[in-house]
Write a protein that binds this DNA or RNA. Sequence first.
DNA 1: CCTAAAATCATTCTAAAGTATGAGGAAAGA
DNA 2: TCTTTCCTCATACTTTAGAATGATTTTAGG
Lengths: 158, 158
Amino acid sequence: MTIRKFIEKNKAVLLYGTCLALLLFLLKWLELRFVIFDHSMEIYIGAIAVIFTGLGIWLTLKLTKPKVETVVVEKEVYIKTNGEFRLNEKELSRLGLSSRELEVLQLMADGYSNSEIADRLFVSLNTIKTHTSNLFAKMDVKRRTQAIEQAKRLSLIP
Amino acid sequence: MTIRKFIEKNKAVLLYGTCLALLLFLLKWLELRFVIFDHSMEIYIGAIAVIFTGLGIWLTLKLTKPKVETVVVEKEVYIKTNGEFRLNEKELSRLGLSSRELEVLQLMADGYSNSEIADRLFVSLNTIKTHTSNLFAKMDVKRRTQAIEQAKRLSLIP
DNA sequence: CCTAAAATCATTCTAAAGTATGAGGAAAGA
DNA sequence: TCTTTCCTCATACTTTAGAATGATTTTAGG
């Protein structure tokens, strides 16, 4: 059990050892072949140098964790500072908007459709339509976009 | 001048070459010393193997380029609402809105209906519809109210 | 308790908005 | 000159918004 674990852990080292042993055998055999030539020694040394340099490179590439250079790129996110919004209660009471109507107005300005507002407030679409109609009458506008524009201008919504 | 630049660029390669040359001298010298022993060849080969493996490792560690990893960090930019309006040209070009589309967007935000915008710009209602459709696609929204909300948030319109 | 305002919902229409597609002309670049 | 983009317009269709009306149910206040 422990032997297997040992093998598992030192797999790379054992592989390296085996390869080295095999290479030595190969070199021993090559030695016999090259020894008959005059400059065989230089060739032999050169081959060894090249092979083991390559082995070192291969080993390093295999065993070292890849270097990671982290480049931080800043992406700008634009956020409107709406901290200083003050509801214009004078205008609100002048127009006589109810709390529910103001709520609907707010959601309209956020870009929600009538059915989405209905879902969000857990009421029916018809109810929202009634609210919007009353809203437009009270604000004296014809469309939701006008209502939004005026509500922002009058500080009824941020 | 060009020689200096060449040296500068191939510093690592030249260093490697010099080291290799020095090592060969060393090995030649060692050869003379070890040749008198019986198993000198094996020791010699082992030394070469170890040295060049080390050289390969060192070279790899020195020369490998780090992998570049890009990390996007969102930087929050707060926009003052009370100040003068500054068109966010970066966002505008990012979305790829044409001048006519921006014009239509502006009028939409002012509460005008499509036909009113058409009259104002002396074009047909269908043209405005086309503009709005393209606008919504570019801004990735579904309704004009969403387009207005996003345009204000991104400072495309006041 | 009673009432007025507010909130809820429905139905029926009409108007407006939005989608999809094709196409022609003008201007700007490559 | 050729290509691309923008602006223009049209037709046909679907979806959503809005108007008008009526009705029921809460809810707060006199």
